[in-house]
Amino acid sequence: MTKVTMTVNGKAVSKEVSGNTLMTEFLRDELHLTGTHVGCDTSQCGACVIHVDGQSVKACTMFAGEAEGASVTTIEGMANADGSLSVIQQAFQDHHGLQCGFCTPGMVMTAAALLKENPKPSEHEVRDYLEGNICRCTGYHNIVKAILAASGQDVSGIAAE
């Protein structure tokens, strides 16, 4: 067992974990932050995307020990301080960018990473950036629309799907 210490959603945490504990297991089982989902366990689906020191990472393919000393943000840390939905989260609700909700945490985390890198992405850039995130319900159109809307761009001309 190894002791790992990191900041998760602004809170310092320290736990004993074994060397092969995955970041998803650490978040879900040790910290009970179950918003980070495991859809495939093999880096395909993107439901487990979190931010580690500002970088989007698939938590199912990272050991907890690799986040030693890091600042980690999960979906549970994405709302505004007063608990209201952030701009991206609100855009997902406004544009029906989710259905069953299982891929949604990963989609929101990926969207946040994109808009940090590229505050006004084109539709093509949004679709390209979502390459590592799979959704089985929505057909993606409304997710793309929500992300474009969250970037402050006018999406009124884009037909609802």
């Binding site: 179950t34 918003g35 495991v38 609700q93 989710l98 909700g101 949604t104």
Partner: peptide, 20 residues
């Protein structure tokens, strides 16, 4: 607006694997 969206968007949904 769907009622379930807020919990899904904030990581507060409760799927079966979230129950222990």
């Amino acid at each position: 607006k769907r009622r379930e969206d807020v919990r899904f968007l904030t990581g507060a949904g409760q799927y079966t694997d979230d129950i222990s």
